[in-house]
Design a binder for these strands. Structure first.
Lengths: 335, 335
DNA sequence: GACCTGCATCGAAGCGCTTCGACGAACTGG
DNA sequence: CCAGTTCGTCGAAGCGCTTCGATGCAGGTC
C-alpha cells in the first residue's frame, strides 16, 4: 500500500504538505499542489481510511439502520437504501448497512466505536427503543418516519396524514360515497408503525369532513388474504365504489379479483393506491396513486444528516407533500 | 469516548493486557480477565474502529457492491444484501453497501484505502470491468454470479443451467410438448448477464434431449409487455401448453391474462416460474417454481469470503443445486 | 533598513489501538 | 537446587494520518 509519506518523498515535500493538499485546509502554492497531485496519480495513492479516522476522529461513514422485518414493503426500503448510499457518496461518505436483527444495541456499538459519524434510521416506530440510545450518543442522526415524540430529533417522512386525506378527496370529488381501505397487515398496526396510523388518521378525518363513509380493513398481502378481505367489505358495504389500497402487495390481487367478479375498473369501482410510481405503472390497470417518494426521502435524510455533521443544528420534522397522479383506475362514481 | 487506556487504569492493568483480554491472543489469568471485563462493562467501552483498523490493518468490514440498474429483480437483491449483512455480523464484520454508480473505480478506492477487508460483488456480468481491478488488489473477493472466465475467482451462484433443465423436465414429464419461455427483459440479454444466458442454455439443451419444442421470448415486466409477448407466442405456437417464466415481474400479469383469455391454470396451460418462494406463494395461483435461494447465496458468499480472509485459499465455483416445488400451477398436459 | 504581515512549508506530537520482545514468578525435571 | 519452561503481564514501538505551532521568505510600509 502506498502511504502519505511515500507520496511526500516522491513529490519532494513533507507529509503535512501532502495532507494539506488533500484537505485544502491551508493554502498551498499552485506549483507544489500540482506536483503533489501528480505524485498521487502516479503512485495510485488512496489515503488509509483507518488512519484518517483515527487522526481526525471522522470515519466518513454514515450508518443506515434497516428493520429486519419483511412485512414492510421491500422495494421502498431498497430504493431508500440505494438513494442513501449514492447521495452519501456525492458528499464523500460511504454507507454502512445495519440490519435490525442486532437490535438497538447496534446503535451504541456503531456510535461508540466511531465506526460511523452519523446514523439514519428507517422504519421508525412510534415508541422506538433505538431513540433513547440515539439521544445518549452525541452523533447526529436522522429518522425516516416519525416517532411519537419528535423533540430533539430530525425526521424525514412523507406526510401520511395528507396522503390519506388526498386519497379521500380524490374519490369524494369523483362522487364516491362509500370507500373501503385495504390497509396494511394487522402486524403493522400492532407494532404501532407511525405511517400506517397517520394515514388512517388522514383518511378518517377527511372522510368525516367530506361526509364520506369509510371502512378500514387491515389486510395481509397475497391473493387469499385480499380475497377474504374483499368479500367481507362487500358483505358489510355492498355499495362500496371506491378502494384505497395501502398495502402495495394487495394491489394486483385486488385488481384481479375485481375483474374476476365482473366489476369493471374504473366504471364500477375506482381504485387509488399508495405506492411507488413504478408499481402504479406496471399494474394491470394504470393506477391512480399517491406515490411514495422513497428516493427523495433517502436523499433528504442524507442531506440533513450531513448538514448536522457540519454543525448546522436542525431539529425539525420535514414532511414531504404527497402528490396524487390520476390515472386509469379511478373515475366518476356510478349512479 | 472511553479508551483502552482508561479501561486499563480502571482495572489496574496495562493497556496491552486489556487488548489481549479483548483479542484472546495471549493467555490471561481468569482473575485479571474478569476484572478487565467488569471494567469494560462498567465504563461502557467500545474499541475505536479507526484505531483498530490502523493498528491491525483490518477494518472488519466487507463491502457489498450492488448494481445500480433496476432491471434486476429487486427483492432478490434485497434479500441477498440483508443476508450478507446479518451473516457478516455473526462473524464480527460490518457491511458497507456500494452502489454501482461509482463504477469499477469503487473497487480500487475501497480496497486501496483499506476501508473494507474484502468484497462481494453482485450481479456479475460475463465480461465484468470490475474483475481486472479485483485481481490487481490483494483483497479477497467473492462473486455472486458467474463471469465468462472464473479462473482465480471464487463464485457463488444458483446453477442456472440445471434450473433451466429442471423446468423443462418438469413440464415434459407432465406431457407438455410445446413450451414457451417468458424471458428476461431484452436489456438483460444485451448486457450478457450470465444467469439469463445460462438458464437459456439449460432450457434449450434439455428440451433438445427430451424432444420438446421450446420458444423463447425476452419480455419486459408489466402488463402491457406480457400481453404483447403472450399474443405473439400463441400466434406462433397455438399449441403451447407450458410456460416457463423467468422474469418474475411477468408472473402475475401472465396469470391474469391467461385467466382473462379463459385458459385455465393448470388444466389448459401449466406455468413454472423461476422466482423466490415468497413470490410463488403469494401469487394468485400457488406457483410451481424453482426458487432462487437469495438468502443462501448471500450467506455462502460471506462464509467463503471470510474463509479466504482467514487464509484458506478457495478459488472455486460453488453452484447451488436448484429445487423445484410442484404446486398448483402445473399439471398434466391436456390431450 | 528595520519592521511587520501573510504565505507556503516543515517538524513533531499525537489519535487509540495491536503486537513484539522482555521479564519476573511459578513450576518442572534431573 | 539450579537450569529450563511456561505463564501472565508490561512497556514501547509503530500503524498512517491530521493538525498545531514554528519557521523561512517575499513583499509592503514608514
Amino acid at each position: 500500500m502506498v502511504t502519505l509519506a511515500e507520496v511526500a518523498r516522491h513529490a519532494g515535500v513533507s507529509a503535512s504538505t501532502v495532507s494539506y493538499v488533500l484537505s485544502g485546509k491551508r493554502s498551498i502554492s499552485l506549483e507544489t499542489r500540482e506536483r503533489v497531485e501528480a505524485s498521487i496519480q502516479e503512485l495510485g495513492y488512496h489515503p488509509n481510511a483507518g488512519a484518517r479516522a483515527l487522526a481526525s476522529s471522522k470515519s466518513n461513514i454514515v450508518a443506515l439502520m434497516m428493520p429486519l422485518r419483511s412485512d414492510m414493503y421491500v422495494p421502498v426500503m431498497m430504493e431508500i437504501a440505494i438513494a442513501v448510499a449514492t447521495t452519501a457518496r456525492t458528499h464523500g461518505y460511504d454507507m454502512l448497512l445495519l440490519t435490525g436483527d442486532e437490535g438497538a444495541s447496534a446503535v451504541r456499538r456503531v456510535t461508540r466505536s466511531g465506526l460511523a459519524d452519523a446514523m439514519i434510521l428507517m422504519d421508525v416506530e412510534l415508541k422506538d427503543e433505538r431513540l433513547p440510545l440515539l439521544r445518549e450518543s452525541d452523533r447526529p442522526a436522522v429518522l425516516i418516519g416519525l416517532p411519537a415524540d419528535t423533540t430533539g430529533h430530525t425526521c424525514v417522512d412523507l406526510d401520511f396524514v395528507a396522503t390519506g386525506a388526498l386519497c379521500v378527496e380524490h374519490l369524494a370529488g369523483l362522487g364516491h360515497r362509500d370507500i373501503a381501505v385495504i390497509g396494511e397487515a394487522p402486524a403493522v398496526y400492532e407494532r404501532h408503525t407511525g405511517f400506517a396510523e397517520r394515514t388512517l388518521d388522514g383518511l378518517r378525518a377527511r372522510s368525516r369532513e367530506l361526509g364520506v363513509r369509510l371502512l378500514h380493513r387491515p389486510c395481509e398481502g397475497g391473493y387469499q388474504a385480499v380475497a377474504a378481505t374483499l368479500a367481507r367489505v362487500f358483505d358489510e358495504r355492498p355499495g362500496t365504489t371506491g378502494f384505497i389500497v395501502q398495502n402495495e402487495s394487495a394491489v394486483e390481487p385486488l385488481l384481479g379479483l375485481l375483474r374476476q367478479q365482473g366489476r369493471a375498473v374504473p366504471e364500477d369501482v375506482s381504485v387509488v393506491a399508495i405506492c411507488p410510481d413504478q408499481v402504479a405503472l406496471q399494474a394491470s390497470v394504470r393506477l391512480t396513486s399517491v406515490s411514495i417518494p422513497a428516493q427523495e426521502m433517502g436523499r433528504q435524510a442524507v442531506v440533513r444528516v450531513i448538514a448536522k455533521l457540519a454543525g448546522q443544528p436542525e431539529d425539525e420534522v420535514a414532511l414531504l407533500t404527497p402528490e396524487l397522479s390520476a390515472r386509469a383506475s379511478s373515475g366518476p362514481a356510478p349512479i
